[in-house]
Design a protein around this nucleic acid. Structure first.
Length: 302
RNA sequence: GGUACCAUAGCUCAGUAGGUAGAGCAACGGACUGAAAAUCCGUGUGUCCCUGGUUCGAUUCCGGGUGGUACCA
């Protein structure tokens, strides 16, 4: 990544769930005189606060946050929308400060912001629904058949066990008449700003402990009531989320409450693991413990 | 205290007619350009409780010990 001291800096503070990103990012942002843009694909939804461990009103008061609770669970949103919004906000904030802090654990969204995501039209909901029905009716085999036919290039590289990936290819072809593989440039967008990427992490056992504690804390704060309130909307993508889906299964009598809470902790641990796997590919990133704020600031200013 | 049963992976357990062992879950590793807290792929990590004995060879059979469970006192 080319450095240029005249340019503004985007500070990415990421890391696995429950590592302590919120607290550290507030501390760092205050010391930099910066505001925070969230890159958390579930904290976008204003209806969800407890189950997504969104920053509290007190925390939101300490530093101005952007893209927290800016969507409804009924809204459609994606990484490209995020890229555009986040860049627009950052450009505005850089008029007041040299730094903008981005905090969150959604790797795809961070990638979109740092490296760009190829511009493509949104696929109409109708087409998305039709492709989903194709999968429900004909399974993976049905998806493979159609994708092989409409986009052999993508079919050759796609994970043919992953319905989401194949549905995406089919959707794009049906929506645009042009193969998904033609829309993908596989190139990185040069950004006119510096990017400092910080991954916060802890020893795995410690992270697991914090996840267990946070799960209990969420229940005390009213996680069950929150899940109950949105149970009628359980089919929405925004609610296909750890902490909600397990409680929905409990409410549907698939297992008891204790099992649901155990599954929440387990699935949160697994999510954290997937996040860590994602962040390992960030070659320019520096890894820190959340408490190492001085070292983090030093790295940002270096 | 007596009798019976049990002791194998982090957990629940299977198994080896004696040739050092395998399932589920957990865990670990990975992929991922518009659902991403989503979706998908891969990997057994083990003093087979301890200790004597029989045997070429014991996790497996026998004795003793320890721990657990149940029943009887």
């Amino acid at each position: 990544m080319r450095e240029n001291s005249d340019r503004k800096t985007l500070v990415i503070l990421t890391g696995p769930t429950a590592v302590g990103k919120t607290e550290t990012s507030i501390s760092i942002a205050r010391q930099l005189g910066a505001e925070i843009i969230s890159a958390d694909a579930r904290q976008f939804y204003r209806e969800l606060t407890i189950g997504t461990a969104a920053p509290t009103p007190e925390e939101l008061n300490l530093v101005k946050h952007h893209l927290v609770g800016h969507l409804s669970i009924h809204d459609y949103y994606n990484a490209s929308h995020f890229e555009q919004q986040a860049i627009e906000i950052a450009d505005r904030l850089w008029k007041k400060s040299d730094y903008v802090v981005v905090t969150g654990g959604s790797g795809l969204y961070i990638d979109a912001l740092c490296f760009g995501i190829d511009p493509m039209p949104d696929v109409p909901g109708q087409i998305r629904a039709e492709v989903k029905i194709l999968y429900q009716l004909k399974g993976l085999e049905g998806l493979r058949d159609e994708l092989k036919n409409c986009d052999p290039g993508y079919f050759a590289i796609v994970d043919q066990s992953n319905p989401n990936r194949m549905m995406r290819g089919i959707e794009m072809f049906r929506a645009t008449g042009k193969p998904f593989s033609m829309w993908r440039s596989n190139s990185t967008t040069e950004r006119p700003f510096n990017i400092k990427t910080i991954v916060l992490n802890r020893p795995r056992a410690e992270l697991a402990l914090r996840i267990g504690q946070r799960t209990s804390a969420m229940v005390q704060q009213g996680l069950i009531e929150e899940a109950l309130a949105y149970y009628p909307h359980r089919h929405l993508n925004a609610l296909n989320t750890v902490g909600f889906k397990e409680l929905f299964d409990w409410l549907a009598n698939r297992y008891d409450l204790a099992t649901a809470l155990e599954k929440i902790a387990t699935n949160t641990r697994r999510y954290a693991k997937r996040q860590i796997t994602w962040f390992k590919k960030y070659e320019d990133a520096k890894w820190f413990l959340p408490a190492e704020t001085n070292q983090i600031l030093q790295f940002i200013r270096s």
